[in-house]
Design a binder for these strands. Structure first.
Length: 307
DNA sequence: GACCAGGAAGCTC
DNA sequence: GAGCTTCCTGGTC
């Protein structure tokens, strides 16, 4: 099993980009018991290292992605202890809360990716097209070099059967990173499957996934829904699209090319660009879904019926 | 050059 | 037929 799930190959620890946003009620101790070793070690790593990072990051409530290439914060692995001010039961409680948050946020990030890519959360169920989507997505998100060709025509099952070394052989510059991220997806899929087998303690996480399931059911997504999803994930997409006035439904596309690429990815339209996307937005004018605000500005639109 | 507006035709479900 | 996608012309910033 890879040691890269908690720590990405460049030495930076993997951390969910939205790690402090909300709290998820996941029963970690329960989930870890009896899990296959493969996935267990993955989450062990994730939990301990992310927890350390989160505690160190406190009290900052929000973790803005850094400017430039999206990278995770570096953890000083030599640092001892999670919260020096806390001891015994208090520290345990604190750790449990942090762990719940971390896992919840990891699952949310995956859920978002599932929605946007229209793929299932379980890599074992991916066809070759799904694999390429996931690769594109991960490369895009973590600014990795393109490796799609190296994994051409592989299904999710093929991918899951590959070792870290095989990933590296196929893609020397980012194979290990991709393998690490695939491990996270595998672990999340395992946990989802586990909680869907009637474990009432995991109701919170079931809620977490129900949204993803509804959008991973193959139902086509409308452009306005897609835009709204991006707007509702400011920690992930705030740099390319954001609310100017959420109450009035006014939003601005900050990076038109980026949003168009995401939409193209979602719809499997590689040739998508902002020109075409904006044409689709303008189709909404007649339908009364989106309009230009009263004071028209470039790249600024308004939902006729705000959230 | 990038964005905006809208007509028209084509494609997919 | 709905909901885009693609291509286009012409205009504004």
């Amino acid at each position: 099993m890879s040691n890269l799930v908690g720590t990405l190959p460049d030495g930076a620890a993997f951390a969910p980009r939205s790690a402090m946003a909300e709290h998820s009620a996941w029963d970690l101790g329960e989930a870890k018991a009896g899990a296959p070793g493969l996935y267990l070690s993955c989450f062990d790593m994730l939990l301990t290292e992310d927890a350390a990072w989160l505690v160190k990051a406190a009290p900052t409530p929000r973790l803005e992605p850094p400017e430039g290439p999206e990278q995770c914060p570096v953890i000083d692995s030599q640092e001892q202890g999670l919260s020096p001010g806390l001891e015994g039961p208090e520290e345990e409680r604190s750790l449990e809360q942090v762990q719940s948050m971390v896992v919840g946020e990891v699952l949310k990030d995956i859920e978002t990716a599932c929605k946007l890519l229209n793929i299932t959360p379980d890599p074992m169920e991916w066809n070759a097209g799904n694999v390429q989507k996931w690769l594109l997505w991960t490369e895009h998100l973590y600014r990795l070099p393109h490796a799609g060709k190296a994994f051409h025509e592989l299904t999710g099952k093929d991918l899951c059967a590959m070792s870290e070394e095989e990933f590296r052989q196929r893609s020397p510059p980012c194979g290990d990173t991709l393998h690490a991220h695939l491990d996270i997806w595998k672990s999340a899929a395992w946990m989802k499957e586990r909680c869907s087998v009637g474990d009432t303690k995991t109701a919170g996480s079931e809620e977490l996934w129900s949204e993803a399931d509804s959008s991973c059911s193959g139902q086509p997504i409308h452009l306005w829904q897609f835009l709204r999803e991006l707007l509702l994930k400011p920690h992930s997409y705030g740099r390319c699209i954001r609310w100017l006035n959420k109450d009035k439904g006014i939003f601005k596309i900050e990076d038109s090319a980026h949003v168009a690429r995401l939409w193209g990815l979602r719809k499997n339209r590689p040739a998508m660009n902002y020109d075409k996307l904006s044409r689709s937005i303008r189709q909404y004018y007649k339908k009364g879904i989106i309009r230009k605000p009263d004071v028209s500005q470039r790249l600024v639109y308004q939902f006729v019926h705000p959230v």
